[in-house]
Each structure stands twice: as C-alpha cells, then as structure tokens.
Amino acid sequence: MRSIVYALLACGILFACGGSSAQMETSPLGNRYQLFKDGGSGDPVATGDFVYFHAAMRTEGDSILFSTRQGGGEQPVVQAADEANDQIGPVEDVIRYMRTGDSAVVRVNIAEFPNKPPGLENDTVILYSVVVTEILSQEEFEARSAAEEAAKEEVRAVVRAREAERTEFAAGILKAYNEGTLENVQTTPSGLKYVIHEEGTGAEAEPGKGVVVQYIGQLVSTGVVFDQSFGRGEGIPFQLGTGRVIPGWDEGIDLLKVGSKATFFIPAELAYGAQGTPDGSIPGGSELAFYVELEKVE
C-alpha cells in the first residue's frame, strides 16, 4: 500500500476535507494550504526526519476517492526533504511545517494539468487532508525499521513453512470439485461458488475496510498454480469493495471473518473475462479456484 500512496503523492493527488481557499497560505513552492495546530505537540519536522501520516483524497465536491486509514497495509511514511528541494509533491511540501498531531488541508489546482487523472476529468481542484501521527529522526527510524523487519521475517518464515501443505490442500479441494465430490459448495446469485473450510471468529470483512489475505490461485481446468502468497510469506493488502481486485474476490472476501479459510470458484465473468491476463498466465474464459485465508481486517 505504501507504493500506492507514494504514487499519489508524486501525482499531487492525496486529499482532504474542508478548507476555504480564502483562508489558505502559500508555501515557497507555491502550494496552497491551511494548517491546524490545535492538536499538535513537540518540535516541527526537520530535514531528514521520517514522518508518519494519514491522508484522505477528496474532490472539492466532497467525493472521497482514497483514504490511507481504510486502504489496508502499512501506514505511509515519508522522509522530509530539504527546503531547497522543489522536486516534491504538495503533501510532502506542507508536511515540513507540521508537528505530531497537526492536521492540514492542501489545495491542488488540477485544471492546469496536461492530463487529468482517470475519473477526475470533470474536476478542477483536489484537496488533501493530512494528519501527522509521528515524527522520527533518521536514527530512530532506522532502528525501528530494523526491529520491524526482523519481526516480519519471523512471521514470513512461519507462513512460508506452510506453503507445501497448503498447496497440497488446495490441489485436493480442486480435484474434488472437478470430480463432483466436493461437499458444501454454495453458489451466490452472481455465479460465485465457494466452500468455507473453517469459519473465522474475528472481525467481519466489510466493503471499505482494509483486509489482508493469503491465497493460492489455480486454473480450474488444469490445476496450474498461477499465483500464490505463501511462498512470499506475506498476504496481499487491499481495500475491500473498491474494485482493487477482481469482482469474485470483492464478493467472496466479503463473506468471511478474520481466521476464515475458504475456496472460491470464480467464473471468468467475475475474474479476467474473455481476454485473460496480458501475460497469458490466465487464458481468456478461465474459471479460477482461489484458496484463501483472511488474516486481517482493519
């Protein structure tokens, strides 16, 4: 998720709530913003500091396009650039004037963009709402990152150790499905078929919430595994119900709770359609089987 946030920053499109243009200041780089310091504390950001923040992206008409709090995955962090650096986005620019707990609104005029971002062709302004949650020096950030990476690697090793066993289990489920002996298969009105192997007891997945999912994807016709997360040791994070994954996943994951283990049998029309994937790993018209484990709901 962090890579998505950086892409938005680079494009100048992370945005926000409220903020009258008449009340806004202009930074030396020409970015218009309004800074709220009521909740802030501590020293302001210094060059080289690492700043953890949350941001929401909104049109001037209050249509929210993206929120880092609901996107799933890790909280975004950016290293504060020197004031002489003008090759940064508006959020990165304004963050340099903030403290922990401060919030700001940044106004970006996209009417002058040569090519407007998809979906914003009829808009002229984007607003960012930004809240700084923590500021760390480079030394503190590097120490934290090393500790976090060590902890993550322990978790990844546990997940990777399950790869062979889970792959064998998924293959057995698909074999039974193809032979017509798989029990308790349910079908939704859209045509999605699924079996819940183990019902979770945690939070329910809901549209708009961030989720993390472990998975094994197979072609129903051949049993070929075209993608899986266990070998990487990390599940995939995404915001449910926002079209960031194939429709069969958005519908299927919505049926689960944290801890659930299930297999989805997804028809082509809820997956990659008649075209398949550009790399050819999933041919056009393919029915797909996904063994999934819902790890987290945020």
Rank of each mutant, 00 (worst) to 15 (best):
E83W: 11
R69Q: 12
F50S: 03
G210S: 07
I126L: 15
H197G: 09
S21L: 13
C17F: 14
V258F: 02
A171R: 15
V292M: 08
A7L: 13
K37H: 11
A262I: 09
G191S: 08
V297S: 07
L182W: 03
A262M: 14
L120F: 12
E25M: 13
A22Y: 06
S229C: 01
F226C: 00
I236C: 00
S190Q: 10
T133V: 11
N184S: 11
E25Y: 08
S286D: 02
V155Q: 10
E269G: 05
G284R: 11
R96A: 13
R160Q: 15
L65G: 14
R99M: 04
A268Y: 12
G191Y: 11
R107L: 13
Q138R: 14
V245K: 03
A84D: 12
T167E: 03
A7E: 15
G231C: 03
N109P: 04
V91Q: 10
M24G: 07
T222W: 07
L174T: 07
R96N: 05
A289G: 11
G208K: 10
V106T: 10
E149Q: 13
V245W: 03
A271I: 03
Y215L: 06
Y97C: 02
G72C: 03
V131F: 05
E83H: 07
A171S: 14
L127Q: 09
S20N: 15
F290L: 09
F169Y: 14
Q70S: 11
V225L: 02
D38P: 00
D43L: 08
A274L: 13
D102Y: 12
Q186P: 03
E112H: 08
Q218Y: 04
K296A: 12
S27G: 03
Q79T: 03
L8G: 15
M1V: 05
G210F: 06
L35T: 04
N109G: 02
A56D: 10
Q70A: 09
A205H: 12
A274F: 08
G223R: 11
Y6I: 09
Y33C: 02
G248C: 06
P207V: 02
G252P: 06
E139Q: 13
D102M: 13
D102G: 12
P117I: 06
T242W: 01
V212M: 08
R69T: 05
R160I: 06
E163C: 05
N122Y: 04
E293G: 00
T26K: 14
P267N: 09
L8D: 10
E179M: 05
F290T: 00
A176K: 15
A205S: 14
S67G: 05
L255W: 07
S63I: 06
G40W: 03
P118M: 10
G72D: 06
G217K: 04
H197R: 13
C17A: 12
D279A: 09
V78S: 07
G202A: 12
T167Y: 01
K152C: 02
N178I: 00
L240G: 05
D250I: 02
E287N: 09
G39P: 00
H54Y: 12
M98C: 12
F169G: 00
R244M: 14
G42Q: 07
G12C: 10
